[in-house]
């Protein structure tokens, strides 16, 4: 039987992993003193996806991203970024917007962007040219020669974001990119992220605002208490919870409650309840036969927000129980 040398096996494995999984991590653990911030996080981000790392404050999102980028090393576990186990080796193909924004206040906006590009291997002159174009496209052309200290917080944040994209990275890591932006700039950022995805980049971003994740993420991980509690698509997260129905009978008879599921609660003249596992058809038939009629009926799927709250609440209850 013909076998490849061990090293060659690994090389091929890493190459194939890089092809379809630009970010892969298994069992990442990181402690700061006695506090275990990340307790075995595993991630696998498909190529060309917008991948959201969701979690409450202090869940370990930032620490996970910093480990993936090689800013800090994990105490345990493995990571593979763009086919390299050492993120430093591929830093020129990665763009990063940290949670705590950092720019030199005395630098001009275009210089700051060109500087960030230069750090990622982009020529200064080309960086300046691209910076001018990017600032113009973002509606900040007038601020290109203004110093960072004279820009508003939101504008400076956009400048930094443009700086992290200027070298056209294959992987873009954004830590809480929407925080501190007004709704107009949040929409601009969403458009930028989608455009980068369309260019072929893979985007990994963290947030605790579910609206953005629900709108733009292809896949998500929900981290709570230092562990991944859910991994999948937004729809998969939402289907974890049963659908909810709101029913308004034609009659005002209280007896209708007896036909509805046990969790039904009356809100004015409407009833709200969880749709039974088999579906709502049989229940609707029963209600009509009993003469209650249907003045209104809406069935809605729970949002990502509800799924998130449920998962995180369960983790918090688990932790409280463990402490008790």
């Amino acid at each position: 039987m013909h076998t490849l040398p061990r090293g060659q096996h690994l090389w091929r494995f890493e190459l194939s992993l890089a092809d379809d999984r630009p970010v892969w991590a298994s069992g990442l653990v990181k402690s700061f003193g006695k506090f275990e911030a990340v307790k075995g996080v595993s991630l696998s981000v498909p190529k060309g996806a917008i991948y959201g790392v969701l979690g409450p404050n202090g869940a370990g999102k930032t620490t996970t991203l910093r480990m993936l980028l090689g800013i800090i090393d994990p105490d345990k576990g493995e990571r593979c970024i763009l086919g390299e186990s050492s993120p430093r080796n591929v830093s020129q193909r990665v763009g990063y917007l940290p949670e705590e924004r950092g720019l030199y206040p005395s630098m001009k906006a275009r210089e700051a962007i060109a500087f960030m590009g230069a750090l990622r291997g982009l020529d200064w002159a080309e960086g300046r040219r691209r910076a001018d174009a990017a600032l113009e496209a973002a509606g900040l052309g007038y601020a290109a020669h203004g110093k960072i200290r004279k820009l508003s917080k939101g504008m400076a944040q956009l400048v930094q974001l443009l700086g992290s994209l200027i070298h056209k990275p294959d992987l873009i890591v954004l830590d809480e990119p929407f925080s501190g932006l007004d709704p107009v700039n949040q929409e601009l950022l969403e458009r930028l992220i989608l455009a980068e995805r369309d260019r072929g980049a893979t985007i990994l971003f963290s947030t605790h605002v579910m609206g953005h994740a629900q709108r733009i993420c292809d896949r998500i991980s929900i981290i709570a208490g230092g562990k991944v509690r859910f991994e999948g698509t937004v729809d998969e997260a939402r289907t974890m919870l049963p659908m909810k129905a709101q029913y308004v009978p034609c009659s005002g008879d209280d007896k209708v409650g007896g036909l509805l599921p046990a969790d039904a609660e009356r809100i004015g003249n409407a009833w709200r309840f969880t749709v039974p596992e088999g579906g709502a058809e049989r229940l609707v038939t029963d209600l009509i036969r009993a003469g209650h009629g249907i003045a209104g009926l809406s069935i809605e799927r729970p949002g990502l927000h509800d799924a998130f709250v449920r998962i995180v609440s369960a983790v918090k209850a688990e932790e409280a129980e463990a402490v008790a």
């Binding site: 090689g70 800013i71 830093s91 940290p98 924004r101 950092g102 030199y104 206040p105 990622r120």
Partner: peptide, 12 residues
Amino acid sequence: NKVIEILAASVP
């Protein structure tokens, strides 16, 4: 000014 985070992520 937190630039160290950018530097640490970009270069050794």
